[in-house]
Nucleic acid binder design. Structure first.
Length: 365
DNA sequence: GAGACGTGGGT
DNA sequence: TACCCAAGTCT
């Protein structure tokens, strides 16, 4: 059955009003729903990418307290923007947002562009975020297709395209365009997502509470649990890592700034390396410090903690050692820096290295 | 187009 | 334990 035929099976006008009326009555009271300021909407949408609402709320509130206006954020330095994002993950989001905001301030007089064409040129603004900002902040009838929308529409319209494939997004965007409630695109897009979050959940959807169940082809056929079709990704690889918390005679701690591209870009970390198979860890670490960093350190024989950390595509097991070193003339050398404990806690570290730091302090007391 | 890119929570 | 998920984007 083709798409046009399938959509003839639902009454679009009734679907729109049932959905939007439900949203008006049942929507959650979320901080970013108090204000349609395009900058604030934009910040919330970037934070919500691949991230749960409950996780985002405190970050969103802190972010706008620190950077209340688009100009305030444009003026921030990178250390500050990473620190406020610390623990949220996908750190390129905040670096792209910062770059994009600076462009809006310099090229658009601080006004977030209101066309798909222009807003999509900004870093970190893909098809979803463009549609979300344009519809929520500017009331434009542009689709905002995220995972919720694909799940909801796959069920309502019995769409069986594999949502794990990037090519499927356009199928759902076309569907949203045909279903769009032009009287209130903001509510329509948000209602689709809210329905996915509250009712039309990935497992055990609450069909009996669903405001649009009479329009749902999956419910009609009892196949809501079989949709959406989504192929699974292959499993993650693993890395064993040696890390060291090194203190000099002044009590300052050696940290390293990660490269500006790739995993955890520009975040700080304790010096570390991948374990070399078959070699003694302690000797490997000692050798690494002397040959790579030209540091003469004495390392404890046994690690003080083992940290396991799981990423989406990778897992780390980090054995962390403690050590001391003599020379402390310079505070900076390349990507290395000696900092006090207070300074360290003002810098942005990935969660894996925060775990090392917490274990270190715990072991000290 | 497949893989990189984080983290915390749920089953 | 071992997945899978959560308001995606970039390369």
């Amino acid at each position: 059955m083709n798409k046009a035929k399938k959509e003839n099976l639902i009454n679009i006008t009734e679907f729109q009003s049932d959905l939007v009326q439900w949203f008006q009555e049942e929507q959650r009271d979320l901080p970013w729903r108090k204000d349609k300021n395009p900058y604030k909407v934009w910040v919330s949408e970037v934070m919500l990418q691949q991230t749960r609402v409950d996780t985002v709320i405190p970050y969103y509130n802190r972010f706008l307290e620190k950077f209340p206006t688009i100009e305030a954020f444009a003026d921030a330095d990178e250390e500050a923007i990473l620190k406020i994002w610390e623990g949220l993950g996908y750190y390129s989001r905040v670096r792209n947002l910062h770059s994009a905001v600076k462009e809006v301030v310099s090229e658009y007089n601080g006004i977030v562009p209101d066309t798909k064409e222009e807003i999509s040129k900004l870093k970190g603004v893909g098809p979803y975020t463009a549609g979300a900002v344009l519809s929520i902040a500017y009331g434009k009838p542009i689709p905002a297709v995220d995972g919720n929308v694909m799940r909801v529409l796959s069920r309502i319209l019995l769409i069986t395209d594999d949502i794990a494939k990037s090519s499927s997004r356009k199928v759902f965007e076309s569907a949203v365009e045909r279903l769009m409630y032009h009287d209130n695109p903001s509510y329509f897009n948000q209602a689709l997502m809210e329905l996915g979050a509250l009712i039309c959940t990935p497992t055990s959807p609450s069909c009996l509470l669903c405001p649009v169940r009479e329009h749902c082809q999956a419910f009609e056929n009892g196949v809501q649990e079989e949709l959406p079709v989504k192929t699974r990704k292959k499993k993650t690889r693993h890395e064993d890592i040696l890390a060291v918390v090194l203190k000099n005679e002044e009590g300052k701690i050696l940290i390293n700034k990660r490269p500006e591209e790739g995993l955890l870009a520009n975040l700080w970390e304790f010096p570390n390396l991948k374990i070399v198979p078959l070699l003694d860890p302690w000797e490997t670490l000692q050798d690494f410090l002397s040959t790579e960093y030209l540091l003469d350190a004495s390392i404890e024989q046994h690690s003080f903690t083992e940290v396991r950390h799981v990423f989406t595509h990778l897992t780390w097991t980090i054995d962390a050692y403690e050590g001391r070193l003599k020379s402390g003339e310079v505070d900076e050398y390349g990507s290395l820096r000696f900092v006090t404990e207070e300074e360290l806690e003002e810098l942005a570290f990935p969660v894996s290295h925060q775990k090392i730091w917490r274990a270190y302090k715990e072991q000290k007391r």
